[in-house]
Design a protein around this nucleic acid. Structure first.
Lengths: 154, 154
DNA sequence: TATTGTTATACTCTATAACTATA
DNA sequence: TATAGTTATAGAGTATAACAATA
């Protein structure tokens, strides 16, 4: 594999298009199979954002997970109904719902994240150290391109 | 960023879990927005597999895209109805449907792939060459872990 | 009037169960 | 009986449009 000498943006994009969906499918399927995974990827992301920020609006959720506002509202509905988060009215603007995680939500997130991480880690275990280093570095390179935030999500 | 010295499988997994969904969301949203993208990610993958293999069973499609057999059957239904592929009966076993791409299917795939690649490439353009090299290498490292096949998909 | 969010409605995707046809 | 696939049915997720409440 001596194709490492400066791939074009197109080559790089092709590689991403080729691999990322497969990785995502693995993550998603795993979430579906595991009993401890009671969250879809979107729900996971929404909850993670809620936990991370400590409290945010429905619009913020919508933007973060890439849903329309009505869909985000329904997404929150479901997570509230299941006890992972709660709605609170913004003290200065009664139109705004502040979404906050519950203790159960924080726990579920940690459980889900841990299980996903462990499963992925198992799959990566047999790679040479060097490959893992490259992968980790690549993820950090991709972060600013595909993420609004700057820090670690979660 | 001097965290390159041998990240643990867990660290590596955390990075993947952090970034991959965001990348995937970008790809998916782009596919939804672009008029030239008449395919969802799953449809895209199924069609790509069909084109790549030249002909395969519904079960093969199901396994490749990670759907149940009935769902894959319906997926094929839709793609056949829209003229991207056709069904043919296996000459030696009449139970098996051989799925083949049509000319329109091959063209649509190339169009979709090109558009996706161009869009992603634009996003990656401003990265330093070195980052792109790392990303491309990382994708190749991930390929055998998350993919059944060995060659390039497409 | 503009903004934030919810409700109403419909469509797509996916799953499980039951079924058909073939081996 | 076992296998490949389809049909029937139902549930989740998402979108657009219409609405309600607040600013």
């Amino acid at each position: 594999m001596e194709s490492k000498s400066t791939p074009s943006p197109q080559d790089c994009a092709a590689g991403i298009l080729d691999i990322i969906p497969a990785v995502m499918r693995t993550i998603r399927n795993r979430m579906r199979q595991e009993a401890s995974f009671e969250l879809t990827v979107v729900q996971f992301r929404a909850l993670a954002r809620t936990v991370r920020t400590g409290g945010l609006s429905v619009s913020d959720v919508a933007e973060h997970v890439g849903l329309t506002l009505p869909s985000a509202s329904k997404l929150v509905d479901g997570l509230v109904k299941r006890g992972y988060m709660r709605r609170r009215i913004h003290p200065n603007d009664r139109r705004i719902s502040i979404i906050e995680p519950t203790v159960k939500g924080k726990r579920a997130l940690q459980t889900a994240r841990g299980a996903a991480r462990r499963h992925l880690a198992t799959m990566l275990e047999h790679l040479p150290n060097r490959d893992r280093a490259v992968i980790a570095t690549a993820m950090e390179a991709l972060r600013p391109v595909f993420t609004d935030d700057n820090g670690k999500a979660g």
